[in-house]
Amino acid sequence: MIGIRIQKKLQLADQATELQVDINLPKGKITALSGKSGAGKTSLLKMIAGLMKPDEGLITSGDETWLDTSAGIDMPPQKRKLAFVFQDYALFPNMTVEGNLRYAAGKSVDEKLIRHLLEITQLSGFKKVKPLQLSGGQQQRLALARALAQQPDLLLMDEPLSALDLEARQQLQQELLLLHREFKFTAILVSHDISEISILASKVIQLANGRVAAFGTIEELFGSPDRNTLKLTGRVIGVEEQWLIVLVNQQVVRLKKQNQNYQLGESISVQINPDLLQY
């Protein structure tokens, strides 16, 4: 289990906020971290990784103490057994695909693991290629493979799929799920996408203004109170005399107006009667 208790005064989104987090991550599971931009997600990851110094805190991984400000312990990032998948992937342009994996694996290179990672990420044919010549999806796969080559106790992923288009994103989500089934890594995944979170994560931390606003399972946080209705959120993209044009889940639908006060861009909640649901 990984315990994280952190406190830090931050200048987030142009206002001073105090980031205050106290959570325990379940071992072998992916925990999603969501929240508006400026909520402190990236800062939290950086403090866990030792790339930013919290004012006060205690971070433990199993029997190891990574940080204990009261005892003056602050392990450098080099000593913490974790891997970080950056939003921009941070692949080393001067090294080949294989070189990136080997550099990440360090001195104790596990040849079998490297070969296996290249295979499951479909990068075996690109071993000698430099990362900049890969497609977006391939770069993202390499970033994941490289992180796993480190055999980390904790994997931190900062919106790893946000730069990809929808199709590549959905495919990568499936692949990430398969990788997780195989390697059973403990991870924090920063994501805003509820579908992505529900596919990959077992628990969700919701961060708002530097505080943990909610911490629980997907059902607890996103499930509807009445399990039999389906609630969707849509955005008004057109207003006609009798109708509203609403974008729901990448689909445009026409809904009958219930009153006159609708504005373009407004979010509305759409409910579907369970009797009408077809699948």
Binding site: L51, K79, P93
Partner: peptide, 25 residues
């Protein structure tokens, strides 16, 4: 910045990171 930070989290010292990641790029 993420390039050197990635290298640090891989266990490489600042000096190794400088010569193997920063300078060659």
């Amino acid at each position: 910045k993420s390039l050197k930070e990635a290298s640090w989290t891989m266990g490489h010292s600042k000096l190794v990171t400088f010569f193997k990641v920063q300078l060659p790029n």
